[in-house]
Amino acid sequence: MWQSSDPAHAAGLRRSEGRVHIRAQRRWPDATTLRHLALHIPNALLSLLVIVVASFVLALVTVVPVYGWAAAWLLSGVLALCRPVGGPLLRLLYGLHRPTTGELARLRPLWREVTARAGVDASAHTLCVEESDAVVAKAAGGRLVRVTSHAVEHLPDGELAAVLARELGHRAGAHAWARLITHWYSLPGLHAWRLLRRAVLQARRRSPRTAALVVPALLVGATVAVILSYGLLLPVLAAPFLMAAAARGAELRADRYAGDLGLAPELTALLHRTADNGKKSPGLAAVLARLLASQPDHRARLHALEQYGAKRP
Rank of each mutant, 00 (worst) to 15 (best):
A70N: 03
A31F: 11
Y257I: 03
L92D: 00
V50H: 05
V220I: 15
P109T: 10
H272I: 07
P84H: 12
Y230N: 12
T62M: 13
E103M: 06
R248T: 13
W28C: 10
A8G: 13
A275T: 08
M243C: 03
A124Y: 05
L45I: 08
K280Q: 15
P84K: 06
Q295Y: 14
A11K: 08
Q307C: 14
G278C: 04
F56M: 12
Y185T: 11
A293C: 07
P296A: 10
A246C: 11
M1I: 07
R206D: 11
D297W: 08
A59H: 14
P240E: 11
I41A: 14
G141K: 01
D260L: 10
R83T: 15
R23F: 08
G18M: 03
P216K: 08
S123H: 13
L271D: 04
A118D: 15
W2T: 04
H97Y: 07
V52P: 00
W184T: 08
G12N: 05
A161K: 03
R106E: 14
T100H: 09
E266L: 04
A203G: 01
I181S: 03
K279D: 14
G309R: 09
V147N: 09
A31V: 14
R91D: 06
V152Q: 09
E306L: 12
G173M: 00
A162P: 02
H36K: 06
S229V: 07
L292C: 10
N277L: 15
G141F: 02
P188Y: 04
A258D: 00
L58F: 14
Q3L: 08
L234P: 04
L242P: 07
I51C: 13
N277M: 14
L160D: 10
L107R: 09
T100W: 03
L237T: 04
H9L: 12
A269D: 01
Y308K: 08
A225E: 04
A122S: 15
A289M: 08
L13R: 05
G259W: 02
A151D: 06
A211I: 04
V114Y: 10
P235F: 12
R179E: 13
Y308M: 11
W177V: 14
R14P: 02
T182H: 08
V64D: 01
P7S: 06
H9M: 09
H170W: 09
R194Q: 14
A10S: 03
V57T: 13
V226K: 02
A8Q: 07
W111A: 13
E266Y: 00
P65S: 13
L45C: 12
D6S: 02
E131Y: 01
V85H: 07
W73R: 07
A11V: 11
R299F: 07
R253V: 12
A238G: 09
D133Q: 11
I22A: 12
L267E: 01
